[in-house]
Design a protein around this nucleic acid. Structure first.
Length: 288
DNA sequence: CACCACCCCTGGACGC
DNA sequence: TGCGTCCAGGGGTGGT
């Protein structure tokens, strides 16, 4: 399930595409793509919107979203959702298309890019230029979680009564954190997932933003998390699952203190935490 | 306006 | 083996 580290690894694995020209596009399922004009209005998708004839200039990421930008600025935004993946097939590679291949690009060197998404929680969106993508889509996202600093997080938390985990999952507050890395970050920062965001003190905000950067940064270095489906565009699996301290480990021993890890549901999401390391009240300070 | 429940979808795990 | 049921969850939407 792609979160920021998996999307970043996918982005890096697509770098061989830079400089390649798109010779043809096949959108096999039209309902997975939305197209927008220069002023943000929706319109019917054409092959032209999907970069046909363009040359790949840059690959950008914001949170969990990925963009392929052509030299003429046409921009294609890819949202992987739960089960989406991109796959790069080298020239002379396997001609068999996996099931649920919804879009297919062919490049001037004979390589192909496939967008595959069984559950269809993901999708594509196109914009005539990168500014439109930013203005109408990415500006609605919060700051990128990989680079989050305490002032950004403090601003996102200010005045919000929501559970801190709910806030971390809200892409308009902070872009890139999903269920796995939310639990891992809160564990590392020793903060209970349901504490109200506005109740966090200065020290907790600093700890949490550091934990988010650290957890995501190490996961990027490990090539992302592969639980079942995820692999990058070259088909490589990630190793960040080996770093998980709490995700998927309810009932098992806390790696820090040995207490049995607890689970509950927050925002309809399975949530695992250590009831001892992550108390709902901040640990009592020494009184002066 | 802030927040929350629900829904979209499929494959895999599990019980019988 | 096959069938039914449940669960995973990112993000949009409609309701409170």
């Amino acid at each position: 399930m792609p979160e920021l580290p998996e999307v970043e690894q996918t982005r890096r694995s697509l770098e061989p595409l830079i400089g390649r020209r798109v010779t043809s596009v096949a959108l096999r399922r039209r309902d997975i793509c939305d197209s927008f004009g220069a002023s943000g209005g929706a319109r019917k998708t054409s092959e032209d919107d999907l970069l046909e004839g363009g040359r790949v200039a840059r690959l950008e990421r914001r949170g969990k979203q990925l963009a392929i930008i052509a030299e003429d600025k046409r921009s294609l935004c890819v949202q992987l959702g739960m089960s989406g993946r991109l796959r790069l097939i080298l020239p002379d590679g396997d001609a068999m298309l996996p099931t649920h291949t919804h879009a297919l690009w062919t490049f001037d060197d004979g390589s192909k890019l496939l967008f595959i998404d069984p559950r269809r929680f993901g999708g594509l969106s196109t914009y005539p230029d990168f500014d439109a993508l930013q203005n109408y889509r990415w500006n609605a996202l919060g700051p990128d979680a990989l680079f989050i600093r305490p002032p950004h997080l403090a601003r996102a938390c200010a005045g919000s009564r929501r559970a801190i985990k709910t806030l971390l999952l809200d892409q308009s507050a902070l872009a890139g954190v999903g269920n796995i890395y939310a639990d891992e970050s809160l564990f590392r920062a020793r903060i209970h997932p349901v504490v109200s965001a506005r109740a966090l003190d200065r020290e907790q905000i600093v700890r949490l933003s550091g934990a988010i950067r650290n957890v995501l940064g190490r996961a990027v270095d490990a090539g992302g998390t592969t639980l079942r489906d995820y692999s990058d565009s070259a088909g490589r699996k990630g190793r960040a699952q080996l770093l998980h301290a709490v995700y998927g480990r309810a009932g098992m021993a806390c790696p820090r203190c040995g207490t049995s890890l607890a689970h509950l549901r927050v925002s309809q999401r399975a949530t695992v935490f250590c009831p001892r390391c992550q108390p709902i009240e901040a640990p009592a300070r020494a009184r002066r």
